[in-house]
């Protein structure tokens, strides 16, 4: 049954690569933003919160177009990054990862923010009175205690990234081997005569990957949650 064509294998591999990079790069940033939002009172906090959630409420096509304007070769950020860091997003798999990361970011931040708000901040104070500076207290107390939220957020972001379509196709198009991920390939197959069987097969594979990710997150979150459950 699983006699996949090279094109399909490439798309699956690319999807996994794009989603993994999107999740890994977004993760530290999401932890930072979630802690800022849950802990700090600063001017512009509401604005930051709204900005983070924006990709969740905007049509993905709009997000993709905004990315194109900002990170395209002529865009202000895109040209600067290309000139200074040699980092090009337009019509590359890196662009697909950026689009996927931006779309998954709000889910990740929400999950981490919720667990940070549920955590007893008194525990950090306790660590301080025992001699731990802020960084050490963060690494040994805060991070382990919000780990379930971080894991849940990462999995949600990964699953969202695997399924990203609208922003990706708008920003980096649908180039086989470079930006053609699972969803865009499925879309392509449904547009050509006789592609239905292949599309169905890929749909099942896509579903299997997502379900595996969710089950995995459940298992890990339970193991961690048991360990850190507050009294």
């Amino acid at each position: 049954m699983l006699d996949l064509t090279p094109q399909e294998l490439t798309a699956i591999g690319l999807s996994l690569k794009v989603a993994s990079w999107a999740t890994l790069v977004a993760l530290p940033l999401a932890v930072l933003v979630a802690l800022l939002l849950s802990r700090c009172r600063f001017p512009g906090r509401l604005l930051l919160g709204a900005l983070v959630l924006l990709p969740l409420v905007l049509p993905p096509v709009v997000t993709g177009y905004a990315l194109l304007l900002l990170f395209g070769r002529q865009g202000p950020l895109g040209s600067w990054l290309a000139d200074n860091l040699g980092l090009i997003f337009a019509f590359r798999w890196t662009g697909a990862a950026l689009a996927a990361g931006v779309m998954g970011f709000p889910l990740m931040v929400r999950a981490i923010q919720l667990s940070a708000e549920a955590m007893d901040r008194g525990l950090e104070e306790a660590a301080g009175t025992l001699g731990a500076n802020r960084l050490f207290a963060f690494l040994t107390v805060t991070l382990p205690l919000i780990a379930p939220g971080i894991i849940a957020g990462a999995i949600l972001c990964f699953a969202r990234a695997m399924g990203e379509f609208g922003a990706t196709i708008t920003f980096v198009s649908n180039i086989p081997g470079e930006t053609q991920t699972l969803p865009t390939l499925i879309y392509t197959l449904t547009q050509v005569p006789g592609g239905d069987a292949a599309a169905l097969r890929l749909t099942l594979i896509s579903a299997a990957i997502s379900i595996t990710a969710l089950l995995l997150s459940e298992v890990v979150a339970r193991a961690v949650g048991r360990r850190v459950k507050a009294p």
């Binding site: 007893d120 525990l123 306790a126 660590a127």
Partner: peptide, 12 residues
Amino acid sequence: GYVFQDARLFPH
């Protein structure tokens, strides 16, 4: 050293 009313032991 501070012993809090609610002990504040690290649950993990």
